[in-house]
Amino acid sequence: MPVYNALVAGIGGQGVITLGTLLKKAALKAGIHVSGSERRGGAQREGHVSTIIRYQWHEDGREADERHEICSPMLPAGSAHLLIGLEPLEAARLARYLNTASTVILNSFPLTPIPVKLGEAKYPPLEVIIEMLQRLAKRIYTWNLTEIAREEFGHSRAMNAICLGIASRVADLPVSETSLLAALQEEGRPADIECFRRGISLADAEYGQK
């Protein structure tokens, strides 16, 4: 059974879970299986939050057999096709899931963890974080999405829909742009659609049409 594995990483309050749920809803629209767990628990902020999205589908109408049905909540190392990092450090924390064919969409805007505020640790420069990710993944796409979201849409959380738009262009998602848009439309916020389109235009302007 072919699979496609995506990860979203960030910190509490950024919208990691929401973005993951949108990617999963798109699977229902596309009529394929999806699973994947998330790290939640408590309403506390500023902690690491990540969610796993595993798409699975049947090839050539073949039904799943007991050996190949996965629907697992977790991922083995080196098996993510896509990592969306809403915060650079939190993307690096999940580097163990990357391989040379992985695509990384990275928001370059850093959020300072408490040990760094207290002077107990240093936040690595963005170039160093990108180098870390490059040890495993080759395709890394970076923007300051927080700034784009705030300046153009008035709120940093707009970056979630922007990320979806970018992903629809730079990653080989098994769900189409139409399915992603349908999932987004169900949320009932017309502004999200604009953000999604902005994501597409960002990806096209920077890296050309796929």
Binding site: A77, G78, A92, A95, R96, Y97, L98, P113, K122
Partner: peptide, 28 residues
């Protein structure tokens, strides 16, 4: 274990242990 998995695990864990921890705190 396939090379792409064992390598990702060892390099990834090395990266994760070299960066600052993100501890949860009270909400704003």
């Amino acid at each position: 274990i396939p090379e792409h998995i064992s390598r990702a695990a060892s390099v990834g864990d090395e990266i994760a242990s070299s960066i600052p921890q993100r501890v949860a705190t009270f909400c704003i």
